[in-house]
Write a protein that binds this DNA or RNA. Structure first.
Length: 399
DNA sequence: AAGCTAGACAACCGCGTTCCG
DNA sequence: TCGGAACGCGGTTGTCTAGCT
């Protein structure tokens, strides 16, 4: 495809806009309104192509734009949305008043991605790196030939893992995810630990086309709004926990978890699976006290000792629900937006987000990336990871 | 002070989708 | 129904600037 006709002129100016050009465009659009961008540059007296004018207006001159830096709430929103729907910048930006897709995209690329990396979280999958490695090992993907990798020699083991990491993304993308799904974490958490074949993994398109009920894009966005609203309306963490079951970890408790060798820890995988795919409970999730065994609490020992290809009843059910051609969830059916018309529906959708909150945003979810509480957020993730690695040092080797 | 580098942000490019005659 | 134009989107590149050596 060639250049659009409007941009096919050799005398079209490119590059940064001058103040004079901005004034001309602003004056014209203010008078005539946005639209008909092909004719705009000529009528406004600009030597620009229409596309460039539209972009300038959309990304910079529009009066409803906010030009100040992103707030923590916005950061959190972006991260959650990115984990949920991937790099759909326009959709993400639509949830952030006054922000453009370009703003969000740039902010993600320059700030948030780096931030997550520094926290040890893969910005693509939103999973801790070590968990990705564990997943990678647990499914027995062909490993890169490294001469006599030792289970005992940590340095060798480490280099082996690095080797794995280096090809992990490629393998995951090419073998399991031909096209990255909206949230690779949610999909891969499920798929990589079960016997599902690649054909069973929903594609991005199928998810967005409502073939899988909990993935309706609009529903997710509504859900995210709900969570955000709830977060804002909650004055303290306890209240929030009672609403959304922020499991276990106040900032103080998260650090203590690493010192014990308890074998029962929450699995990011399991919780997210539950949040994303299990049929909806009729009641909102209840906050669990630390003494009370939680239905969603998870035992890595049991999990890891299981045959990787043997399904327990819950995961089978989960799989049934997720991949049944006819959706089983009660609220399924009808128009796209119908999914989230009522609270129950929104609540169901919100579980996707809740899963993320449970596992990623322990601590104050409204303050996940702030300098003050960032440690609790990161520590809790890394604590769980290091605990897992401590308990199962071989997990990164052959399954 | 000059050169270099990384970060931030603006703008462009290419492609897919939608609109319209 | 079809084809071209317009639009929208995501990825990429270009430019400016602050900080460092």
């Amino acid at each position: 495809m060639g250049r659009p006709p409007c941009c096919d002129k050799s005398n079209v100016k490119k590059g940064l806009w001058s103040a004079e050009e901005d004034m001309k465009l602003l004056a014209y659009v203010s008078k005539h309104g946005p639209g008909n961008w092909t004719a705009t540059p000529k009528k406004a007296g600009l030597k620009r192509c229409g596309k460039s004018c539209r972009l300038r207006w959309t990304n910079y001159l529009r009066p409803d734009l906010r030009h100040e830096s992103f707030t923590q709430e916005e950061e959190q929103m972006i991260i959650i949305l990115h984990a949920t729907i991937g790099s759909r910048w326009a959709h993400i930006a639509a949830q952030l008043p006054g922000r453009t897709d370009n703003d969000v995209k740039n902010y993600w690329n320059t700030k948030l991605r780096k931030k997550l990396r520094e926290m040890g979280i893969d910005p693509v999958t939103h999973k801790p790196f070590s968990q990705i490695i564990a997943d990678y090992g647990s499914i027995g993907l062909p490993r890169v030939a490294t001469p006599s990798t030792s289970r005992i020699d940590p340095s060798r083991s480490q280099s082996s893992n690095i080797t794995r990491i280096s090809c992990l993304n490629r393998d995951l993308r090419n073998v399991f995810m031909p096209k990255p799904p909206p949230s690779q974490s949610l999909i891969s958490n499920f798929s990589l630990s079960t016997s599902m074949t690649t054909e069973m993994i929903p594609t991005q398109d199928s998810l967005l086309n409502n073939q899988y009920p909990t993935w309706d894009l609009f529903a997710q966005i509504q859900a995210i709004k709900l969570v955000a609203d709830a977060s804002n309306s909650c004055n303290n963490q306890e209240t929030l926990q009672s609403h959304f079951s922020i499991e276990g970890s106040s900032p103080s408790s998260s650090s203590s978890s690493s010192s014990s060798s308890s074998s029962s820890i929450s699995s990011p995988q399991h919780s997210i699976q539950t949040a994303a795919y299990l049929p909806l409970p009729s009641q909102p999730y209840q906050a669990q006290s630390e003494d009370t065994p939680s239905p969603s609490s998870f035992n890595w020992s049991e999990y890891l000792s299981e045959d990787a290809f043997q399904q327990d009843s819950s995961s089978s059910q989960m799989q049934d629900d997720m991949f049944s051609p006819i959706p089983k969830l009660d609220f399924i059916g009808g128009e796209k937006n119908q999914y989230c018309n009522g609270f129950a529906d929104v609540h169901g959708c919100a579980q996707v987000v809740q899963g993320y909150n449970n596992n990623m945003m322990v601590g104050d979810p409204t303050d996940i990336l702030g300098a003050d509480s960032g440690n609790s957020f990161v520590e809790s993730i890394l604590d769980r990871d290091s605990e897992m690695l401590w308990e199962f040092p071989d997990i990164l080797d052959d399954p």
